[in-house]
Design a binder for these strands. Sequence first.
DNA 1: ATGTCTGAAGTTTTCAGA
Length: 379
Amino acid sequence: MARLKIATFNINGIRARQDALLEWLEREQPDIACLQELKAPDEAFPQAELERIGYGALWHGQKSWNGVAILARGSKPEEQRRGLPNDPDESQSRYLEADVQGLRVACLYLPNGNPWPGPKFDYKLAWFARLRTHASKLLKDDVPTILCGDFNVVPTDELDIYNPASWRKDALLQPESREAWFALLGQGWTDAIRAVHGDARIYTFWDYFRKHWDRDAGLRIDHLLLSPSLAPLLRDAGVDRWVRGQPGASDHAPTWVELDTTAKATRVGRARAESSARSATSIARASVAKGRGAGKTASAGAEGAATRKAGAASVTKTVARPAKTASARTRSATVAPAPTGANAPKGGTKLATKAVKVRKALKATKATKATKPTKGAKA
DNA sequence: ATGTCTGAAGTTTTCAGA
């Protein structure tokens, strides 16, 4: 069975973390790796060092900020495009697309959008809209595609962040950001981490402030989305948390999927994946829309419920292996020695038990919020 | 409100961006 491991990693400065990058590649051996936030001009990209350990590369840098790259073990990615169509501002290097081993790989670094509200947030939404337009064309053309990168969106309050309270005014949690995310999923893309892990809390980013890593106070903002033709090939997904625990680490950890490229994307499997993605997203979308009118608490609850359904549906329908097995195996294989703190994930916890816990926690949150209005930041 | 990190400008400190 041929397994293809595809990873995405916001490296936060490729020059500052070149050694960390090489160590991760040598240890985890991804077949394809998408990098974001190179923060380096094109001429400073460490092409020779990567080739020395067997990786061909394509990169799109800029001075100081942004910058994306696609690495391929044993080959050079064939460039298909750099930048999204109809981008009025070509100065920001945030998108690179290439063919590798018969797959179309899109590496993206979606604008952060802070401070919210403001022009940077508007730029984020406009960029997201251009991404959706282009993504729908990839689906229409039936290109087997994986979209990966730092989307700068926390999809739900319940499963994708340690505690949303202090992030309410952050661009990563705004309803408009989430609406854009679910609209993209609604085209037929499968959120691979959710499809494999169901209700489990998974984080990919821990900011440098307030000892967030030590407390496992993370966010899930790095995502890998599979086109309908690839979704039935999904076998596993995870986060290389050990990388975040290294001295001087990036604030993100590499996030990955494994596809079984020998599996036949049968018509049945494909139809299943498409319908599960569609129904999951229509529920999520409807609840996000409803939540906007009804207020944030309602939005958060409804959206969480929809996403739990989405995750569960995807697990049973698109992953050939039982989700429980895949999930437990992945956690034991990829979770670093537990950071101190109550939020540290527990390996081997049954998915069902977890789901109940999440629902209970959600109920408790709702009850609290009903009696106590959300505290805003002090003026 | 705060917190921490990178890269830059341009000199040992400050700033923006995240």
